[in-house]
């Protein structure tokens, strides 16, 4: 079964590799600093809020982000887009990667709040032990909410 374990590690590495490094978050070819990050939320556009009255996770980003709210096609609800304001984007500011992480987290939390009324909390306290072989996974988990695709 050692071989299975190794196959597993390879797979975890594949998932973790790009996650651990920020470069892996956005498809690197065709990266565009002014690209919108967005989620689709099952509610009407007016329920997403308006300037000065955004849901808490968006409001917390203050004037560091542009906000875009448009109806989604069909019955899919509303598209909420966020992007770093000009001057704070990748290549323009040393904190750009952090801001992009916070944007992705705010998008996910806003969808949870608007659709379910609260932000789902991960189970805790955890029961895990730290082992050497779990290193790639531990790295990946550091950005398990702030990395990814939106």
């Amino acid at each position: 079964m050692a071989a299975a374990g190794l196959a597993g590690l390879a797979l975890a590495g594949a998932a973790a590799g790009g996650l651990a490094s920020r470069a892996g978050t956005v498809a690197s070819a065709g990266a565009r600093p002014d690209r919108w990050h967005a989620v689709t939320i099952l509610c009407a556009p007016q329920d997403v809020g308006s300037p000065g009255a955004w849901p808490q996770p968006v409001a917390e980003l203050g004037d560091r982000v542009d906000v875009r709210v448009v109806p989604a096609p069909g019955d899919r609800g509303t598209e909420l887009g966020l992007r770093a304001r000009a001057g704070l984007r990748p290549g323009e500011s040393p904190d750009a990667a952090d801001l992009e992480d916070r944007i992705r987290l705010a998008l996910r939390h806003t969808r949870m709040l608007l659709e379910t009324g609260e932000v789902l909390q991960p189970d805790r306290p955890g029961t895990t032990r730290t082992t050497l072989t779990s290193l790639p996974l531990r790295l990946a988990l550091r950005r398990s909410q702030t990395g990814g695709r939106p």
Partner: peptide, 24 residues
């Protein structure tokens, strides 16, 4: 969420607190 409303519950948008792993 939209997926749950379609009856596609295991595709729920809000049920997984570590979404980045599988998005990747």
């Amino acid at each position: 969420c939209w997926f749950c409303r379609q009856g596609l519950f295991s595709a729920c948008d809000n049920g997984n607190t570590n979404p980045a792993l599988t998005e990747r």
